[in-house]
Design a binder for these strands. Structure first.
Lengths: 353, 353
DNA sequence: TTGAAAGCGTTACCAC
DNA sequence: GTGGTAACGCTTTCAA
């Protein structure tokens, strides 16, 4: 009995020899080439491949074909539910399309992002997906655009997820409009006095949501005092810290705290409770994203639902669809306001004036 | 031979020509070969590479070198915080080691798992990491072992995360002991009557935690009635459904519900609250894993902390360390019981009898 | 030290 | 249809 699977992997050569056909025929039989192969040879090759446990060497295929079946995915933070849900969509969508996903985390650092893009393009993926908010003050923006343009020029596809701020196809999240609609719905519930937990204004996602929310309020003649707009980290702990501070300073006149994302809102919820307030009763809270967790906090969090998994799917669709226009395509994903226990209907207090 | 479809990426050839040196010299100058290159040539090559925006084609390098710098990661579900936290550790650890991670999701289906392993090994990664519970009744176990053994025989490294049930290096989670310690601590708090939310007994993680918990109780002469051990899905909704059912059937004599993982416990918390119970006051709940969310549910959930991020890191360490022994290495990760508001100290009721 | 040339595992072109 | 045999982009002998 010959020893199978020796120290080096079985090659197509081995399969061809075993089947008694040429390399070329073996290749045609194994991958779905359009060329026809006589059924007898075909099955002989397949049998040999199975017997030897042959596996095509993807790297070699990539070199020979001049292209890979790989998708590069860049996210801010893999363990953040926002990104991990998008990633799940990307990975599953890619698998449907016969693609394999390689993934890296930028830690929301634009220098790292640029480095990672460079590393990823070295893999010559078919597609490069970059998920995560852009920054208004990204010092590497130009280099990044150059890098990605280069990548597209040599046959790659680029898909951004978030803002349409870069000259590439993007899955557009209507952050501004979603936040505006949320604000309007909250006003309709009777809320009039707000505080906002936001992130650095250079973070576009944060800025858009803040602007949209304020616009929604403005449509009803409402404003938020600058000292009620607290800038903090874009994380759970950021929300926690900022809400603690707000509570310590006194929140008596604030009816609702809007955090520009759910993880911040969830942190805020915990902070408020620890400060002796009762979220939902004493003070309302709303977030943005609709990550899975928010159904299970108390009270359940009102938020703006983004179909994050579908966003990942959509990115793959966009990337695998023919590129007919020279202009970047923007595919907008609809978000919907979801009202839950954290923002109960509020007895309408007469408007001052 | 003109390649169809537009401009092609810059190759090492182009760089060599631009620098006026041979291909070999360019190769030596650009990658950190041990061979020496005259400083003048060296800088000329580097300058040419920079000027042309040269990026080594990783696939071609892989073919030439006969090995990649890739690690394949298989998880059950990317958007599950348990896995996404592990994945974050793997990805960052890999980056430290100069490796790139490709990722896929098994959806906890052993058939899919086998398929994905086959697909992944086709990439000839340096390492294959498989995270997620094993099953006692995996019909593909043998094939999987064969596949992975083959992979190792041809130079690959395999690392499992969870049970030491497969003949490969593994990052071992002491599920049984963690659950046992949790049970003992809960008994020390005064709890005597339990219900348990578990998953299919064929899922080893679930079974080990159940066994461990029961062992911990048994050490104090306590048992759990079979009808108080509810089998459900290993997910948030599974926990929710099972707890709803328990509550509907009447839980008056139950003091604490232990769910074999946190997402189930979190679902249970919501279900109990919706059933009119007050978790932490009316009934205690405990989980397992210590996913980030559990700090922010109400009350905060008691659980067993697993350093999931470190688990991912450890897997990479294991995979990149020299393989001195012929025996599989088992690296156990310590878990610690974390008591929070969901299991308050209980006034000791005299034991019956 | 350098460069020519022989691979690495596949694909695809080109005759037969 | 089939089988030689050039590529593919890079690494690594092997002479010089």
């Amino acid at each position: 009995m010959p020893r199978l699977g020796g120290p080096t992997p079985v090659t197509l050569h081995d399969v061809a020899r075993e089947a008694g056909v040429s390399l070329a025929t073996a290749s045609r039989a194994i991958n779905g080439s359009d060329r026809k192969v006589k059924e007898e040879y075909r099955s002989r090759v397949l049998a040999a491949a199975a017997k030897l446990h042959y596996k095509p060497n993807r790297a070699a295929q990539a070199v020979a074909r001049g292209s890979t079946l790989t998708v590069g995915l860049l996210v801010g933070d893999i363990s953040d539910p926002y990104f991990s849900t998008i990633a799940a969509g990307v990975v599953n969508g890619a698998e449907q399309a016969g693609l394999i996903v390689t993934m890296a985390a930028t830690e929301r650092d634009t220098t790292r992002e640029l480095d990672l893009v460079r590393a990823m393009t070295g893999q010559r993926p078919k597609v490069l997906i970059i998920a995560g908010s852009r920054f208004t003050d990204d010092p590497h923006r130009e280099e990044l655009v150059a890098e990605l343009t280069d990548f597209e020029a040599t046959g790659g596809r680029v898909v951004m997820i978030s803002q349409a701020e870069m000259p590439f196809d993007t899955v557009l999240l209507d952050n501004r409009d979603g936040a505006r609609r949320l604000a309007e719905e909250l006003v309709a519930l009777g809320y009039r006095r707000f505080a906002i937990l936001t992130s650095q204004p250079t973070l576009l996602t944060s800025r858009d949501r803040l602007d949209g929310f304020l616009a929604g309020l403005a449509a009803h003649g409402l404003t938020v005092a600058p000292e009620r707009i607290v800038e903090t980290e874009f994380t759970r702990d950021g929300g926690y810290t900022a809400a603690s501070r707000l509570a310590a300073e006194g929140l008596d006149d604030v009816e609702l705290i809007f955090a520009v994302n759910d993880v911040m809102a969830v942190g805020a919820l915990s902070a408020l409770r620890e400060s002796g307030l009762v979220p939902g009763t004493g003070i309302a809270v709303a977030g943005y994203d609709d990550i899975p967790t928010v159904r299970d906090v108390t009270p359940a969090l009102s938020t703006v639902h983004i179909p994050l998994y579908d966003v990942g799917l959509r990115a793959i669709e966009l990337a695998t669809s023919p590129r007919d226009s020279a202009e970047p395509v923007h595919s907008t994903v609809q978000s919907t306001v979801v009202l839950r226990g954290s923002t109960p209907v509020r007895t309408l207090a007469p408007q001052p004036g």
